[in-house]
Design a protein around this nucleic acid. Structure first.
Lengths: 227, 227
DNA sequence: AAGCGGCGTCAAGAACGCGTCAACACGGCT
DNA sequence: AGCCGTGTTGACGCGTTCTTGACGCCGCTT
């Protein structure tokens, strides 16, 4: 998921942007001043930064400078100042775009899409390994001892849902909801059938599953990492 | 020297921009309509295109679309229309920036610097080779055993998108979004038809594809490098 | 010990996705 | 105007995948 950091001292703007971005499935974090913005970037590199120039502690321009000192993360400056000189300064200091308030939320979202399109955000690979088995979730690829194993779309969805909470128990209703959507929370027979085919393809002994474990009456669990 | 193509139907604007850009040591060429703009791009790929939306012959949006069909040259749209919807449309169709008239010449120059700065961190030439086949993505050339193979614009876009993630799986919705833009994520039949023609031209045995592999229900994948 | 619920297995039919083809629309070019 | 290349759309066959229902087993409860 694309991670966006929004920096603005106005809580109303933070709220509006967060809501709109989250509605588009972005992962959003907010900062109300320059110091915490820099800290967040340091801890958890965003895919895009929306940066207001008027901040309470450090000047927005300085934040941009410091950002550029150690990263090339895309920055879109969002500012109330419409003076061309401000724009030129920010752009020449390394900002990727500049949009003046008030702005249309649609335009902002489009500009965010442009910058992320450019860096073509690579999802962190989600990979599960057990013995000689390798499940690459993001790639939808399963390999055991060099041998390619084919899983169907529904099987991948189930494996993915379990892998995202590896080691933890996933209730039947959650699994059903995640794979088939709302309204299927009681069709536990679907799970029985599909878990069976997954095990037939993946487990060494499908009748004594070690990787995809059943918690009777509750749900399923993917074998935790043996770290 | 950086080569800029300025497209506008207003001679006064062409003149102003030319003068200002040349004063900054840019190599400038101008076009007063879409047709000649496309021709210039075809003959002598610019480093940046400044594109007005109101053109006498072809609509500026159409020019952008056709440009994007065979190149990824940076495009800054320069328009009198300030309607957010116009901006969103242009940006989603592949424009890199959008600036509304009247604008400060300094701001425009700064935005030109941003886009050239970005592309100067140039991408490596993207070439795919399989056996005696050679796909030169950036050049849009396909050759097998000295024999030139012709691919259409859409076919190139598909090949390019797959080549950029060579070996990795590209989901149908991603592919559709990359080639046709937002709103086409469900038209999987497009993919079926066009993948068929690509294979007919490229695969040794189109009925048993080795290079463009289908992952049923999920997407497509370009044969990884056998390194 | 019997009953019950939950689980895994199996098989058959339905539904779906893919590849293919053909017809049509559209724009450019001669 | 007519032709050509390209893209879009709908239809069809085929193989795969999903759904559905039946059945037996096991462990727990009564």
């Amino acid at each position: 998921m694309t991670f966006v950091l929004v920096v603005d001292d106005d809580p109303a703007i933070l709220r509006t942007l967060s809501i709109n971005l989250r509605a588009r499935d972005y992962d959003v974090e907010t900062a109300a001043d320059g110091r915490s913005a820099l800290q967040i970037v340091d801890e958890r590199m965003p895919d895009v930064v929306l940066l207001d120039l008027g901040l309470p502690d450090i000047d927005g321009i300085s934040v941009l400078k410091r950002l550029r000192a150690f990263t090339s993360v895309p920055v879109i400056v969002v500012s109330a100042r419409s003076d061309p000189d401000d724009k030129v300064e920010a752009l020449d200091l390394g900002a990727d775009d500049f949009i003046t308030k008030p702005f249309s939320i649609e335009e902002l979202l489009a500009r965010v899409r442009v910058t992320t399109r450019r860096s073509s955000v690579a999802e962190p690979a989600l990979v599960v390994t057990v013995d000689d088995l390798r499940l690459d979730i993001t790639e939808s690829r399963a390999v055991r001892a060099g041998e390619e194993i084919h899983l169907t779309p529904i099987e991948w969805k189930i494996v993915e849902t379990l892998a995202r909470r590896r080691g933890r128990l996933v209730r039947q209703s959650e699994l059903l909801h995640a794979v088939w959507g709302p309204g299927y929370e009681r069709q536990t027979n679907y799970l029985r059938v599909h878990l069976a085919s997954i095990r037939r393809k993946i487990e060494h002994d499908p009748s004594a599953p070690r990787i995809f474990v059943t918690e009777p009456g509750i749900g399923y669990r993917l074998l935790p990492e043996d770290s």
